[in-house]
């Protein structure tokens, strides 16, 4: 660009020479000025270019510095993270050791519990069988020496022995439900309810009990535990509707607070909501034995099964207006 400017100046000078020789001296000066000016411009341009280059270099240098600085920060971060990680690994190793110890303790406790319930199952039942059996032998073989009063007492003896056997069985099933592994699969709960209901009906054909169920209720649950759950719920409903000429038992699903909730309803004796908190406690009964026979373990079993599934259970009722049990079988419902 600067060279073009100089050429232009020389060409201009040529034309001026041809037409006016007199002022050729001043012509020369003008040419030199313009050449100098062009050179200066060229220098300035070069300087400007080199300045730009310097600026660029500076930028590169500071970028490199920045990268180095970043690298240093990064290295520090990595070192810090490594330290944290080392600490975490140590912590985890400690925690794992603690967990292993806790697991071993749990396994030992479970083993002991198993031995205990085995002993309960085997050893506590034998004497009861003896009490019941020999009481009856007394009635059969020594009836002549036994007044009516004596026979009544023996009746109480036998009843108590049998009741205790049921309590032992209930406790055993409760401890078994706590111990067995849960294995979930997808199933329809309605056929399970129907099958258990059919069995109850076969055992007591004299009663008028209506079962109301929907087409299907799908759940992902442990099938054996579901059988125990509905066995207990149905036994409960069956028992507490025993004084109704027409009993109604209903199983279904409703939407509560955005969650599908199963319910089990009967039109039986119901209960006072004041005691709703005691419904599921072991050995807790809300009716006297003379009103309704029971062990107080059935609903405890039901609650344990629901809890093993991560669900929730609650009861709603009114005296003489029936009871409804609501439950879920999934975590976080």
């Amino acid at each position: 660009m600067s060279r073009n400017a100089q050429d232009d100046a020389e060409n201009d000078g040529g034309i001026v020479n041809r037409f006016s020789d007199d002022i050729s001296g001043s012509d020369d000066i003008a040419g030199q000025w313009s050449a100098a000016d062009a050179t200066q411009k060229a220098f300035l341009n070069i300087l400007e270019d080199s300045n730009e280059e310097k600026g660029r270099l500076g930028a590169v240098q500071s970028a490199v510095l920045n990268i180095l600085e970043d690298f240093d920060t990064e290295r520090k971060n990595v070192e810090q993270a490594n330290a944290v990680l080392r600490h975490e690994v140590a912590e985890r190793t400690r925690a794992e050791a603690a967990l292993r110890r806790a697991n071993a303790a749990t396994a030992a406790a479970n083993k002991e519990l198993e031995a205990f319930s085995y002993s309960v199952a085997h050893d506590l039942r034998a004497p009861l069988r003896s009490i019941d059996g020999f009481s009856q032998a007394l009635v059969e073989d020594c009836a002549d020496n036994l007044p009516a009063e004596g026979r009544t007492y023996i009746g109480h003896l036998r009843e108590s022995a049998q009741h205790m056997a049921r309590l032992i069985d209930g406790l055993l099933s409760l401890s078994r439900l706590g111990r067995t592994e849960i294995s979930r699969s997808r199933m329809d709960l309605v056929p399970i309810v129907r099958a258990i209901f059919a069995r109850f009906r076969r055992e007591q054909p004299g009663r008028s009990v209506e079962l109301i169920v929907p087409a299907e209720v799908i759940a992902i649950a442990d099938v054996r535990m579901m059988e125990v759950l509905f066995e207990n719920l149905l036994e409960n409903a069956w028992k507490f509707t025993s004084k109704r000429p027409h009993a109604r038992i209903e199983f279904g699903q409703v939407l509560r607070d955005g969650h599908l909730v199963c319910y089990f309803r009967d039109n039986g004796a119901g209960f006072d909501m004041e005691y709703a908190g005691k419904l599921f406690a072991v050995f807790q009964r809300l009716h006297t034995t003379s009103e309704f026979e029971g062990t107080g373990i059935g609903l405890a079993n039901v609650e344990r099964i629901v809890h093993r599934h991560g669900g929730r259970i609650w009861g709603e009722g009114e005296v003489d207006r029936g009871a409804t049990f609501y439950f879920t079988l999934e975590e976080g419902t």
């Binding site: 319930s117 085995y118 050893d123 069988r129 059996g133």
Partner: peptide
């Protein structure tokens, strides 16, 4: 007297022909 699953399992594994639990109630026994 036992109806523990483990006993039943082992009983059959060891070749028992049958496993019967003694009922407490004498009539049923």
């Amino acid at each position: 007297s036992s109806d523990e699953e483990e006993d039943r399992l082992k009983g059959y594994e060891f070749g028992a022909n049958s496993f019967v639990r003694k009922p407490v109630e004498f009539d049923r026994f």
